[in-house]
């Protein structure tokens, strides 16, 4: 199952992740990233890759093949 993390110290609030994968990422009242689902289903991979690729500050990290706990 993929794993996602987001670094709120690096985040600059562009919103690329919430636009790419709205069921996994959101922006809080400060406009900064929050992760709604840290272990999203594999069929979300395309949108997760886009979120990680387009994040302009490198705040969003995707581990594609994380072990299921």
């Amino acid at each position: 199952m993929p794993r996602v993390t987001a670094d709120r110290e690096r985040c600059l609030g562009a919103g690329q992740c919430a636009y790419s994968a709205p069921d996994v990422f959101d922006q809080d009242d400060d406009g900064l990233v929050t992760v709604l689902d840290p272990a999203p289903p594999r069929h979300r991979l395309a949108s997760l890759r886009q979120a990680a690729d387009l994040c302009p500050s490198g705040a969003v990290r995707l581990e594609e093949a994380a072990e299921t706990p």
């Binding site: 600059l12 609030g13 919103g15 919430a18 636009y19 959101d26 922006q27 009242d29 400060d30 406009g31 900064l32």
Partner: peptide, 16 residues
């Protein structure tokens, strides 16, 4: 830069 950017982020978020 980052201080100013963070002051402005709330109103420019996707949701807002």
């Amino acid at each position: 830069h980052d201080v100013h950017r963070r002051l402005l982020n709330p109103e420019f978020s996707l949701k807002h």
